[in-house]
Design a protein around this nucleic acid. Structure first.
Length: 648
DNA sequence: AGCACGCCGACT
DNA sequence: GTCGGCGTGCTC
């Protein structure tokens, strides 16, 4: 008989000790009783010490299969919990889904494809490939900074082939797997077998099959979004993070984490190669590359076509059609369509309009549960809250009940409507609200590729990695509103968006054009995106240094929420008071009402911690967490968001 | 997270 | 008089 520490997916704490009559090994799955339920957990180790006054219970059941979780995987969970100052139980439950952990092994055989396509790397690609391959078998992080179309994927594939040949497994991370069925197909063809992909839009059965095929089966490669990093497997030899700058790698829901950073952390635990790739690397990653922590490789040539011509249109000095589309853009659009080519238009707003207001009382129409304006979807005649997802039939005023409403500003629906009238052709709309399923999205993208639509209007989704050979015009209708968000990364995001968008047009033989409509064409960011992208890093770093923002300083955001406003405010104040004992180098800002100060009827206050170094920040977070726990206000939630990306 | 325990308002 | 609201606290 022995005692074992078991990690359970419970948000508070997570490590409990149980009695076992048979010897257990680290990483094994077990079923144990906790209070009145039975949970599946992971064996960590034999208990080092026993506590007085605890009546230990017995393990209920062990699983037939051998160890699932590797030692390194458990070390990753531990290191994540430590870095983000979250309980390990929360970290575990936030990384592996319960249904998958509890499932019986069901790996499926790898489907071989017709002879793998072979492709020769060009000399630039070859040099980068060889340089990275030379580090194989030890921990090293590489950044491939390559313009769109420079062929980063081919390098990933060659590196993956080497790892497979050495009997190792490869994790290939992409930001939006749902957008990339074409990419999965392409990679599969190159590797000569069907590469399984792992993402939330799969059915539960499919998810389990993919999980087990990589964890215990013969699949040597797994492509997936965030969750793919957390499929435990023996002998992982390479981790690829494509489009490393993408903000969707940041998980917002507790336990929040930055997946790119976790990939690097995992690489250091595994002692393996991590490859990050982007045409527009994040400031954090560039900073690490400049500091010598990551090795920087540059790919500057675009093999198929030269970069498109980019230009701004000053919206102040023209009279845009319906306040949406400048003559200039309209002319380019119709010329593009007449040539039988295609265009992608980006508008930063979902739904029909920007804001709905009441004609009777003049107030903006808000969500009853959240402090945000409702978005009107004209096509379905509903208003919707983007925070709590509630929908209301027939727009009506939330203050006086009147159904007399007016709207202003344009969203994807309105832009599509205006364009359909102007051009007399159907326009394809793409945003996260009308893309409800994987198959629907695939069909929409296929329709566009086949030329059934000449014009695609969408939110930021459209700037991300889509590849359409016939697109020669892309345009941003308005992104000025990005700069008014409370977000120190606004410039970085705008720059990345513009450069990525320019990569969408004219990817093949045809010449491409990019048009940016703006009320502030004088802003330096436009000139940099258009003419001197290499200057952006220095430019932005100056601003970050001046304000002590990342990657120079380190941030942590504490978000408090509760149904009573005074309770949240008081709790946040108490935590702030506790932080007063920290050295003055640690800046404590707030508590202030969060920009969206109410979500689902919970009031929100936030404190921002800013520190010149990571160690001091961590001490401060620990102090905040312990003093918050001491308050014992379990109804108030404090979310710890280290290295925050969203400030709403 | 669940789930039980515990102390205050509108019902058979 | 009880049912049930959800605030609070614990689970090896």
């Amino acid at each position: 008989m022995a005692y074992y520490d078991i990690l359970l997916p419970v948000p508070a704490g997570g490590v409990y000790t149980y009695i076992s009559h048979t010897p257990l090994s680290r990483g094994q799955r077990v079923r144990v009783p906790l209070a009145s339920r039975i949970l599946t957990g992971v064996v960590l180790n034999e208990a080092k010490e026993l506590k007085d006054g605890v009546k230990y219970r017995e393990i209920a059941e062990t699983f037939e299969d051998s160890t699932l979780f590797t030692d390194q995987f458990l070390k990753l969970i531990d290191a994540m919990a430590d870095y983000y100052v979250n309980p390990p139980g929360l970290t575990l439950s936030g990384t592996i889904s319960k249904s998958v952990v509890e499932s019986e092994p069901c790996p499926v055989p790898v489907k071989k494809l017709a002879a793998a396509e072979n492709l020769r790397l060009n000399p630039d690609q070859q040099a980068v490939y060889e340089s990275i391959a030379a580090d194989h078998g030890k921990f090293s992080v590489h950044l491939i900074h390559g313009v769109t179309g420079s062929g980063k994927t081919e390098i990933y594939i060659e590196l993956a082939k080497d790892a497979i040949a050495a009997g190792q497994k490869v994790i290939y991370l992409v930001p939006e797997i749902s957008l990339t069925p074409q990419m999965v197909e392409r990679i599969s063809n190159r590797l000569g077998f069907e590469v399984p992909s792992y993402h939330s839009r799969h059915t539960p059965k499919k998810r389990k099959e993919v999980f087990w095929s990589f964890a215990k089966g013969e699949a040597p490669v797994l492509i997936g979004a965030r969750s793919a990093l957390f499929v435990p497997a023996e002998n992982i030899g390479l981790i690829i993070v494509d489009e490393e700058h993408e903000q969707s790698y940041k998980q917002e829901e507790a336990p929040s984490y930055q997946l790119r950073d976790m990939a690097v952390l995992y690489g250091s635990i595994l002692g393996t190669t991590v490859v990050l790739g982007s045409a527009t690397p994040s400031l954090e990653t560039m900073h690490n590359a400049r500091a010598g922590k990551y090795r920087l490789h540059r790919l500057l040539t675009r093999h198929a076509a030269c970069m498109p011509a980019m230009q701004t249109v000053d919206m102040k000095s023209c009279d845009p059609i319906d306040h949406i589309i400048s003559e200039r853009l309209y002319d380019e659009l119709s010329a593009t369509v007449q040539r039988g080519e295609q265009a992608i238009l980006l508008i930063n707003r979902k739904g029909y309009s920007h804001t709905l207001y009441c004609e009777k009382c003049g107030k903006t129409i808000h969500c009853p549960n959240c402090s945000v304006a409702l978005t009107w979807y004209k096509s379905r005649n509903v208003t919707k809250c983007h925070y709590c997802a509630s929908e209301y039939r027939t727009p009506h005023c939330t203050h006086c009940g009147s159904t007399l409403t007016r709207d202003y500003g344009a969203g994807t629906e309105r832009v599509a409507e205006v364009l359909e009238q102007l051009l007399g052709i159907p326009v394809l709309k793409l945003d996260t609200d009308n893309v409800t399923s994987q198959s629907k999205l695939s069909k929409m993208l296929d329709d566009f590729r086949d030329g059934k639509f000449k014009v695609l209007v969408g939110t930021q989704l459209v700037a991300k990695g889509l590849h359409f050979p016939n697109v020669t015009l892309s345009a941003v209708l308005n992104l000025d509103n990005m700069f008014s968000l409370p977000d120190f990364r606004a410039h970085e995001r705008a720059f990345q968006l513009l450069v990525q968008l320019s990569g969408r047009s004219g990817r093949c033989e045809k010449e491409g054009k990019v048009i940016i409509q703006t009320y502030s064409p004088e802003m330096e960011i436009f000139d940099m995106a258009m003419n001197r992208p290499d200057d952006f890093y220095e430019f932005e770093m100056q601003r970050r240094e001046a304000f002590g923002y990342p990657p120079v300083g380190k941030l942590c955001r504490l978000v408090f929420s509760h149904s009573r406003e005074e309770t949240v405010h008081e709790t946040a104040q108490e935590v702030k008071r506790a932080l007063a004992s920290m050295p003055s180098a640690l800046k404590v800002m707030g508590p202030t009402q969060a920009p969206v100060y109410k979500i689902r009827n919970k009031y929100r206050y936030s404190i921002l911690l800013k520190s010149p170094d990571a160690a001091l920040l961590k001490r401060a977070i620990h102090l905040a967490v312990t003093s918050f726990n001491k308050l014992g206000k379990t109804a108030v939630i404090m979310k710890v968001d280290r290295d925050p990306y969203f400030f709403m």
